[in-house]
Every structure is written in C-alpha cells, then in structure tokens.
C-alpha cells in the first residue's frame, strides 16, 4: 500500500512539474517584461499604473476567453469585435430608452449570446467552416450596430451606465487641506473584478465539467468524440454561445467606460483575443488550451502596450513588436512540442 501511495505521489509530482514548465515559458516572459519596463520607466510599477494595465487588459481577457473556448474545439470566432460593438450599443440604446441599467446590461450580454447561437447553428446545421460562419457574423453584427445607431454614438445615458466601467471597489479617498479629494488607494476597478470572476468560472467549466471535457475531445478528434457519444452539435453551439456572451460582457464594460454606445468600437479586437489565446498556449489545431494561459497572454499584450507607451515607443512600432512576440512565442511552443 505504501509503495502504491508513493508511486501515485511520484506520478503526481512529475505531472505537476511538467505542467509548471509548460506554463512557465509564458509566465517567465510576463515577469521579464515587468522587470524590463520597471527598470526603464519609474512610473511603470506605480499603483495607479498597475490598475490601469489591469483595466486595459480586461477587455482583451474577456474576448480572449471566448476565443479560447472556440479554438479548443478546433474552431475560431472572428466575430468577437463586431459582436462586442453590437452588444454595447444595444445595451446603451436600451438604457437610453429608460430600461434600468442592470437590465440594459443583461440585454447587451444576451445580444452577444444570440449572435453566438447564430454562429453555432450556421456551423453545425449548415455545416460551414467556423472561419466562414464567423466572418459572416463579423460583418453582419457590425452592419446591424451601425444601422440601428445610424452610425452615430449613443449618448445621453444615465450616469449609472458608467458605474461598471469607471468605479472601483475599496477606493480610499482623503480630503486635502484645500478641499480636493486625494486618492490614497485607487481601488480595484469593477472590470478587473469581473475579469477575475469570469476567468475562474470559465477555468472551472473547462477543467471540471463534462461540457468542458467535451470541448477538448471535439477539438482533439471529432469523430472519436462522436463515436463516444458526445453530442457534437450541442457542445459546439454551446462553445459559440459562450464566446458570444464573453463578447457581450466586453461590449457593456467598454461602452460603460465611455458612457456612450460606440458602434465603431472593437474593430479587429478578435485578433487581439486570438493572439492572447495563442500566446497562452492554445493550439489552433484544437484540443489544447487553458484559461490561465490566455489570461497570461492577455497581460503580455496589455503590458507590452502600456510599457512601450510609457517609453515613448510609437504605436506603429508597438504593432511590429507585438507581431514579433506572437510569432516568437508560438515558435517556441512548437519547438517544445516537437521535442
């Protein structure tokens, strides 16, 4: 019995070690970035900048989680950015019409879910490749967002519409001698809290539920999954609905931050989302990927942008650097898998 226990313990150790090494590459990159930027810019590692980074990263993280779910099934969701815009403007229009803000937000998120159902049905019923189906949705959602708003920002929203995107938990203020408020602790922005909560929920869904296991099995070998009794259609539609819901969440958070509905928001954001997933170790061939990896990927992109900005690097150069980072990380990942 003792030997069995020790065998199990040994087995566990070796697995843990392997998993740690796998995650280590991306995480090490993240740590190196933080060290490099804190050395080059004194303002980088301040409390307010850390909060800013987390806030900026949350949008990439929301849609990155959505992208991860569909890529694990060997699919793709190119409609994330457009669905984000549609969900946001729908929420804004609802609030403008007098719908209570929390309900308006729910309507916005649900709009994302509806887009996901449409994607899922086109992929499973019409049997179109996910690339084509979501490319279509990318244009449809953007078109609808522009059409219903007349391509104009939706403004005149109640101030409570801005709470989700702009307020923080545990913000500590003191009054200075001349009566102005002074920020002692900026607090944790609501979008960052939402990001953490959703990331944990989605990680549990992927790792612990039968649905999550089925996502991986479809991405790994769809025919084997079907012959094992996995309900392919349901699970795939589920994946695209989750992706749409995450785009919806990103949409309401972003529009709340702007306190307007911007139909032109989020153009090409899906590419950031896919990049975050891929940097975090998700394989475009399907069957492989984790939420924690994607969050790390999202932070790598967020920190690169923020740090390069603080060092005065132009946005064009930033694009070049991020492009190289994507190519580099995936290359390293492939080298490791090839052994």
């Amino acid at each position: 019995m003792a030997s069995l226990d020790s065998a199990i313990a040994h087995e566990k150790r070796s697995i843990d070690r392997k998993a740690i090494i796998q995650k280590f590459a991306a995480l090490a990159g993240l740590v190196l970035l933080v060290i490099a930027f804190s050395l080059t810019s004194g303002a980088f590692l301040t409390m307010s900048n850390v909060v800013t980074i987390a806030l900026q990263t949350s949008t990439i993280a929301f849609i990155g989680i959505g992208a991860t779910v569909t890529i694990i099934t060997a699919g793709i969701d190119l409609s994330l950015g457009s669905v984000l815009a549609l969900a946001g403007v729908v929420a804004a229009m609802a609030a403008q019409m007098g719908v209570p803000v929390p309900l308006a937000f729910l309507i916005g998120v649900a709009t994302g879910g509806v887009c996901g159902v449409f994607n899922g049905l086109v992929i499973t019923r019409l049997k179109l490749p996910p690339f084509i189906a979501t490319l279509g949705m990318m244009m449809i959602a953007r078109g609808v967002a522009l059409q219903i708003t007349g391509a104009r920002p939706v403004s005149g929203l109640p101030s409570s519409f801005g709470t989700l995107g702009n307020d923080s938990l545990w913000r500590v203020l003191t009054e200075t001698a001349n009566g102005f408020p002074k920020i002692v602790f900026p607090g944790i922005p609501y979008p960052v809290i939402l990001m953490a909560v959703l990331a944990i929920i989605m990680a549990v869904v992927l790792r612990k539920t039968p649905f999550g296991r089925h996502l991986y099995s479809i991405g790994s070998n769809e025919e084997a999954a079907r012959l094992s009794g996995v309900k392919i259609t349901k699970v795939k539609i589920g994946a695209y609905v989750l992706s749409g819901l995450m785009a919806g969440v990103a949409g309401i958070v972003l529009m709340s931050r702007l306190v307007t509905g911007q139909p032109n928001e989020g153009v090409a954001y899906e590419l950031d989302a896919i990049a975050a997933a891929v940097i975090g170790g998700t394989s475009l061939a399907g069957g492989v990927g984790t939420i924690s990896g994607t969050i790390i990927g999202a932070f790598i992109i967020g920190i690169l942008r923020n740090g390069l900005n603080m060092n005065g690097v132009s946005s064009f150069t930033q694009m070049i650097i991020i492009g190289l980072v994507i190519i580099g990380t995936v290359w390293i990942d492939q080298l490791r898998n090839r052994r």
Partner: peptide, 27 residues
C-alpha cells in the same frame, strides 16, 4: 476514429461515460 491522441489515458477512458465520475456537476 477511436482515440483522442492529444488527450490523456484517463480522459480517454472516461470519455464515453464521464457522467459516472461527475459529482454535483463537476468532474
């Protein structure tokens, strides 16, 4: 058609009957 070669021994063995190891909705 039979195996998910990217997945583990454990995951393949429970693939056709994952419900048997689910408690309160979680594996």
């Amino acid at each position: 058609n039979g195996l998910s070669v990217k997945m583990t021994v454990k995951e393949n063995i429970t693939m056709a009957n994952i419900e048997a190891v689910v408690r309160h909705g979680l594996i």
